[in-house]
Design a protein around this nucleic acid. Sequence first.
DNA 1: TATTGTTATACTCTATAACTATA
DNA 2: TATAGTTATAGAGTATAACAATA
Lengths: 157, 157
Amino acid sequence: MSSDGGPEQGGERERAAGEAWRALYRLVFEREGQLRFHEACDATGLAPGGLKALLQLSADQPIPMRDLADFFRCDPSYVTSLVDGLEAAGLAERQSHPTDRRVKMVVLSRAGVEALGQARKILGEPPASFDALSTSELLRLRTLLAKLTEAEPPAGL
Amino acid sequence: MSSDGGPEQGGERERAAGEAWRALYRLVFEREGQLRFHEACDATGLAPGGLKALLQLSADQPIPMRDLADFFRCDPSYVTSLVDGLEAAGLAERQSHPTDRRVKMVVLSRAGVEALGQARKILGEPPASFDALSTSELLRLRTLLAKLTEAEPPAGL
DNA sequence: TATTGTTATACTCTATAACTATA
DNA sequence: TATAGTTATAGAGTATAACAATA
């Protein structure tokens, strides 16, 4: 955080930022987010690792296994076991790379796409506490959060 | 989510709620939150489970081990191993309950309090993307999020 | 020689079952 | 009899090391 407010605003700005962040963190990381994630695991029959992998895959954009390992900062051998699991469940398939025959790429099967939709539906459902905000407050909240996510580094795959 | 807006506002309200929630989720659960948590693990030398336990403890309010198991929805035997770890690291101590001699309670040692402070400092640091908001926007964001956390069920220990 | 993915193996995390002590 | 915590054990989850195939 840099301070860009007025000369007397720095403290207030930083306090507000800290409080906002900690509220975000509590809301998502310690409560509803975890619940949602567990629900989605149960609904799809996947272990946490399998669900995280599922969420990074699609039917039409094959992903090299190596990229998954980089994204998750895990060992390639673990990606092997994750993809083994998804394949055994009929949710994903390995494809060979068109030009580099060392590389294997992963895509979702039809069942995988369906499971992904189910997971996204559960994860995307706002918690009951959102009822505490009026519609205009929700609109403002959405706008502010959109600014934050746009400012983030493009951490995707 | 119930819809309490005007007759034509329901769709917009729900869309805003969904988008706000998913932005929250992405921000905390898939990115900065995970990074912060890993950093805090490294800084304290604790495994994820140990850090989660540390965050629920304090020096002056002893917590029965059973309450920890309930809070984490885990088996009591796992609490035993978590507390064993914290104790071996010199961060926590077991106390006996004053009246019920079956119960053991956990408190932080002086080193535990210090480690907790270190962890909270890391976890509570807002991400760089917060620079994208003006001070007044941060103040508004904080206010909106405070309403949400206040509306949550009191999930604490 | 360097890189992708797999196998074999081991270590960590977490749960189940059986047990002790206490209520 | 029921409850708090521990021990022993077993099962996931994840990493390391050695290896085969390909670049």
